[in-house]
Amino acid sequence: MALLEIDNLNRHFGGLHAVNNVSFSVEQGMIKAVIGPNGAGKTTLFNLIAGNLPANSGTVNFNSTKINGRKPYQIARLGISRTYQNIKLFHGMTALENVMLGRHIRSKAGFMAGMLNLPWTWPEEKQIKDRSMEYLDLLGVADCADIEVSNLAFGQQRGVEFARALATEPTLLLLDEPAAGLNIYETAEIGRLISKIRESGITILLVEHDMSLVMDISDEIVVLSFGEKIAEDLPHNIQQNEEVIRIYLGYEDV
């Protein structure tokens, strides 16, 4: 059984068939990339998996349980975490506090315990903080810890968002264009980091336009075009796939 199984998934927006009968699966421990031109339906696919959008038909199975129809927070608790193409940080909170939210499902102090500041919540709170610092450190943004996130540079915001997603200790990590807007050094750094995360046992599903990054790090690639899956193969086969090359011609160098 694969970790994530997507079966005949469909989503329409009015007359637009944004995700058209897409099926594929992601094996435990792999890095799988989803590529395709702008508007191909990649982000929509992520939203369907994470529960942000309901599917019109089809199923998403995670760990052999059907997860579509569940609420995003329930899906998160099952072990799926994500980052967004257009970064979604908690404004008005510091970088550290943002990442601390990632520890939410890994801690349990409740409403009353928090309000009364009960002593037993202190060790947990300290642990949340320490772990979050480690994730900030891993992403190289530990020095931003106490800065309100709106005041961070773009690359730093990406790092904080990535750290936040990791802090949930997910089984499956969905990354929507993690290298968008980064320079070549930062992109290479992100690539190394993604490989390292996979080595720690986390499965990764990745949407990315940077082809050299995708070819470098992914084990398998799914190609979407106008909502349909047109290819699914190993990276070097995708590079030679006639149809993929045709779709990408005039769009971006493969």
Partner: peptide, 15 residues
């Protein structure tokens, strides 16, 4: 506070 900051992302964190 995270709900105020970005409700969708708060949900995605399991809140």
């Amino acid at each position: 506070r995270s709900i105020h900051g970005a409700e969708e992302a708060a949900n995605a964190m399991g809140v």
